[in-house]
């Protein structure tokens, strides 16, 4: 049981690392959104699923309730993170930010 929890947790941290490095390295705002939006969601899913799983160790009704609440949080993050990313893109497009093309300098 512990191994599964550690596996999920390290997978979550790995995705978070990818997301953070991606935020720094990508040339343009729109390309930076890819890692930020996707990897943060997936990273938080696997990390929080690991913690929910760990919570079920000493199986009691209260622990089950807390785990269900944690999984509810995962569903909430799944719903809100892409929507927030979409709102940011909408603000960028509406303000007239043109996407980066290959030849341009890093923005």
């Amino acid at each position: 049981m512990d191994i599964i929890v550690c596996l999920f947790l390290f997978a979550g941290l790995f995705f978070f690392t990818g997301g953070s490095v991606g935020i720094l390295r990508f040339p343009d705002f729109y390309s930076r959104l890819h890692p930020a939006g996707k990897l943060a969601t997936l990273g938080s899913f696997s990390a929080i699923a690991a913690l929910a799983l760990f919570n079920l160790h000493q199986f009691s009704l209260a622990a089950l309730l807390t785990s269900v609440k944690i999984l509810l949080l995962v569903v909430f993050v799944f719903l809100t993170s892409p929507t927030a990313t979409h709102a940011i893109v909408d603000a960028g497009v509406r303000a007239g930010l043109t996407p980066w093309t290959k030849g341009e300098k890093r923005r």
Partner: peptide, 12 residues
């Protein structure tokens, strides 16, 4: 974008 990324990490 940065604030959103920090926020989602703080939740975990």
């Amino acid at each position: 974008l940065g604030v959103n990324a920090i926020g989602s990490k703080t939740v975990v």
